[in-house]
């Protein structure tokens, strides 16, 4: 069996790539993709420890995280659409206030 440290290193790398995207990009679509990377990093941990401990709770919970990610993308794309209509761009720095 592959040691758990390898899965954790992969998960940490994917999470930090997502965090890098969130911290450095202005485009809201990049934001969504980066958040998806971070959620999938958590999923890697869930599945890895589920396999490691022989308990199915992690794998089942990973399915729920995937469903939550789908819901988040649905809302996120709706927000991006409104952002594009009102500002003409999808840059998150343009929307600096809650009302416009």
């Amino acid at each position: 069996m592959v040691p758990a440290q390898y899965y954790l290193l992969l998960s940490a790398a994917v999470f930090c790539i997502g965090l890098f995207g969130v911290l450095t990009r202005d485009n809201a679509l990049y934001f969504l993709m980066s958040v998806e990377l971070m959620l999938n990093a958590a999923n890697i941990n869930f599945v890895a420890f589920s396999l490691f401990w022989g308990n199915l709770t992690g794998q089942t919970f990973a399915l729920f995280v995937i469903a939550l990610a789908a819901a988040e993308v649905a809302i996120g794309i709706g927000i991006i659409l409104v952002l594009y209509r009102n500002f003409g761009s999808v840059s998150v720095t343009d929307a600096a206030t809650m009302r416009w």
């Binding site: 290193l9 594009y84 003409g88 761009s89 999808v90 840059s91």
Partner: peptide
């Protein structure tokens, strides 16, 4: 547009160093 036309795309890479530093800390701990 869906592309970044502000001209500063990718110029703010300095905050990304926090992500790199976090990965180093996590890797050492793991």
């Amino acid at each position: 547009m869906t592309t970044d036309e502000t001209g500063n795309s990718g110029s703010s890479l300095v905050p990304g160093l926090a992500a790199v530093a976090l990965f180093v800390v996590m890797a050492v701990a793991i």
